[in-house]
Design a binder for these strands. Sequence first.
DNA 1: ATAAATAATCCCGTAATTTGCGACAACACA
DNA 2: TGTGTTGTCGCAAATTACGGGATTATTTAT
Lengths: 286, 286
Amino acid sequence: MKRLRKKSSADKVLGIVDLFTEEIPAWTVEMLIKELGLTRATTYRYVKALYDAGFIVPGAGSSYVLGPRFIQIDRQIMRSDPLLRAARPLLDANRSKLIGAKILSGFYGDRVLSIHVDKIDNDIALTMERGRSFPLIYGSPSLVILAYLPAYQLRNVYNANAEKIAGQRLGTSWQEFRAEMKKIRKAGHRVGGYDQGSVIGVAAPIFHAPKAVSTSLCYVRNRDICTESDIENLIGQVTETAAKISQELLNYRSEDGTMSPVFPSPRLAGQQHYDEDDGRAAATEV
Amino acid sequence: MKRLRKKSSADKVLGIVDLFTEEIPAWTVEMLIKELGLTRATTYRYVKALYDAGFIVPGAGSSYVLGPRFIQIDRQIMRSDPLLRAARPLLDANRSKLIGAKILSGFYGDRVLSIHVDKIDNDIALTMERGRSFPLIYGSPSLVILAYLPAYQLRNVYNANAEKIAGQRLGTSWQEFRAEMKKIRKAGHRVGGYDQGSVIGVAAPIFHAPKAVSTSLCYVRNRDICTESDIENLIGQVTETAAKISQELLNYRSEDGTMSPVFPSPRLAGQQHYDEDDGRAAATEV
DNA sequence: ATAAATAATCCCGTAATTTGCGACAACACA
DNA sequence: TGTGTTGTCGCAAATTACGGGATTATTTAT
């Protein structure tokens, strides 16, 4: 399971980006030399490689900081994502006062990441913001995607997370888990936040191809003011809007001649995570 | 002037990110093999390096797309930037109806990049959005930063852009240019958009240290509805708010014991640009 | 404006890593 | 369960990255 490939030169260079955390956003080359244990010449070579690529940029006092390249690529991802282009007008059109926040989530590698967050009710306590990711098995936005994974992938997920799945009351055996997932597919939505957390979230799947799901829409409402009938109402709204977005995507797909696959999709991958959330945070969320 | 260093392995790997443009956001490994002219094994090695670092992620149909790492780093930059932390409350506090948009710009490498854009008047036509960058010599947000560069850097900029500077009526000689810059420093602000474009912009410098500027604030107003007295008013507001932000930054600096340099700063660098704007776009802007 | 200090690059022989090639394992999907 | 595709693995040849110090460029101080 562990990835023990020998570190290549490129790996080492790319790894330097990790050093630019929130605690230490700026590094001088001298600091990097000490941190990396490399010679001055080599460190400068690495820095230059990153600099030439635009990933870091000179900052104050002979330091380097993360470059604007990241900001630009973030924007590019946003603009070129067909999901966002299809979804935003439809989301903006729905102005129901019941909806405290709208969250669009996507499946990346092996986690579910919030792609777009629209917070309407300012009193709502959302830890979810664009760019945060959660494991596949925590939270309604995740579950509604998980439920539509191909059977063999579902099986892999189950095997890798059997205990946690049981802990989330999603089944104590593969059979039970499978049945639970089928239930979600049947319902067409998932309500989360019943038992803990300050918000109720209702998520529905978005189809980018027939029977293929890799994104979800979640409507959130403050739990204190959320009645049973509100939930029913939200379910109706979220499934309707999600269905409209799905329709858009399918049309878009058929209009556009190019078959270039632009949707992040259900391919499992055991990747490093750059997010501190291991599920406990998610467990208190929708 | 040209950078002819031999491409290292890391350079090649990093360069792959450039391929993921808005036109071709998803690449299969086979496509990359053809594009890079490398063998299958090597291409997979490169892809793996990028994948392990989180920069690309598997997408639909055995393709790879830019990873959520970029989204996360963008958020991190935003959160850890002292400028943004200091500026946002102050910007939000100013609710004058005269202001059509507020633009916070920073100096990165050799360009000025919009760090934060708050568009209030929806009728305003702003090509400036967070993540776009402009050359140092175009636009009032740039000029107000340029004017405060150390003399030797100013000299370098002039030598490298003499013709363009003359074209912008910023002086036909080093002496004139120098005088022009001094004028901007004296005034403490810069008004742009007088002669072309649909908006008027008024920019003021933000000091991150005594006499050191690397960011600017620009208030924008639709030109059609902008009177002379409006401009005077905007000048007053923008200089006042910019001064407040400067004050915040200086305090922050002195409170925080760490001398870690966290501000992008005036160090010139001839870098590759990932933005199509060569000034013509900027010339029709503030 | 000039000089001192710091930051960044260059040079080059050697040693280590990367590359390409083919076979091979793992996976997706019917 | 089989089959086409996707991704990985060893190995020998050869390219290239590394260190250490000298050199140049850039920035700060006088």
